[in-house]
Amino acid sequence: MTAPSPSEKAFVPFVSVENMMRLVHHIGIETVLTELTDVIESDFRRWPLFDKTPRVASHSREGVIELMPTSDGEIYAFKYVNGHPKNMAQGLQTVTAFGLLAEVSNGYPVLLTEMTLLTALRTAATSAMAARHLAPKGAKTMAMIGNGAQAEFQALAMKAVLGIDKIRLYDIDQRASDKVARNLAGSGLTVTVCPSAQSAIEGAEIITTCTADKQNATILTDNMVGSGVHINAIGGDCPGKTELHKDILKRADTFVEYPPQTRIEGEIQQMDPDYPVTELWKVVTGEAIGRHEPGQITLFDSVGFAVEDFSALRYVRAKLVGTGFYQDIDIIADPDDPRDLFGMLQRAKD
């Protein structure tokens, strides 16, 4: 979608939840995940161009509300997102989000969109992008520990991008696992609901942990993790919230998005400040080594970073062209004379 012309600048394309769903089905879910994986990787390849800062977070006992901004010098993006684990008990989403894309040259927004669905898609695509560089070659089986709102997206992304064909599920609430199995029926994946985390990881080359409780939990203990696996830890995403026993981190080569943020929010918050990590963008560009030996344990300590949201927003903007899956909204004041904002207000009385 091109930038609005001067006569259209008062209107901004807005993508509602309904239109986001229409767009995803128009393209195809697995196609979206595959294409979004490539877009995220292309932005990781130009990582030094981006403004980077840990997310601006407001924490409470109930959860967290965050702003995630970044810019590549031409386009600016931000996402508003919350994380409230207890929401599920009230029938509410634990994570909701919306985002905005703007032209740096004039500051005008060019896209406003829901990002609850889009965040799930970009998180899964980022997991697949990392696994493409870090997981054992030819991996076919993934264990999914924590079967909430993210689970199906993660499974389909790993299938579409890596060729995973078997998913082994575990959740403390079996109804969550049954939900995932039901939703993935007919997807081409062989889905097994397991009675424990230990049984779920048997035979898995990739282990994804995605639990919601805001606490220092031990979802995986050291003795559960064999050599050669890739761990995709996406549930540790705020201070005081972890999923892995620290002894696993001592054995693993750990890869992160942006260290200043991950050391606050990720699994590595358990470790000393000098615990060694590798920035994922360096693996993507070839500046650092990812997986290099069969017995190596790789850990993607994912907390989500603004560049991934930037990628998702620019992907959606491009895919909207010619679809009509948006509505123009007038959130920008547009007086005839840019100096006469008050006069525009007064004319509204007429």
Rank of each mutant, 00 (worst) to 15 (best):
T2Y: 09
A3F: 12
S7I: 14
F11Q: 14
V12N: 01
V12E: 01
P13M: 11
V15G: 04
S16L: 10
S16A: 12
V17F: 03
V24K: 08
G28Q: 05
V32W: 04
L33Q: 04
L36Y: 00
I40E: 07
I40G: 05
F44Q: 12
W47E: 06
P48Y: 10
F50S: 11
D51N: 08
E66H: 02
E66V: 04
L67E: 06
P69L: 11
T70V: 06
S71P: 01
G73K: 08
K79I: 13
V81N: 02
H84I: 15
Q93L: 11
Q93A: 15
V95F: 00
T96L: 05
G99S: 05
S105T: 14
L111P: 01
T116H: 04
T119Q: 05
T123F: 03
T126E: 10
M129P: 01
L134W: 00
K140P: 01
T141M: 07
T141E: 05
I145K: 03
N147L: 09
A149H: 11
Q150T: 09
E152Q: 13
R168I: 01
D173I: 14
A176T: 12
V180P: 03
N183Q: 14
L189P: 02
I201R: 06
I206S: 07
K214T: 03
K214V: 06
K214H: 14
Q215T: 12
N216Y: 03
A217I: 06
T218K: 11
G228V: 11
V229L: 08
I231T: 10
C238Q: 15
L244S: 07
D247C: 01
L249E: 00
K250S: 13
P260W: 14
Q261W: 08
E265H: 12
E265R: 10
I268Q: 08
I268D: 08
V277F: 04
T285G: 02
T285Q: 02
G286H: 01
H292D: 13
D301T: 04
S302Y: 13
V303N: 09
R317H: 15
A318G: 06
Y326N: 06
P335G: 11
R339W: 09
F342S: 11
F342A: 14
G343N: 07
Q346P: 00
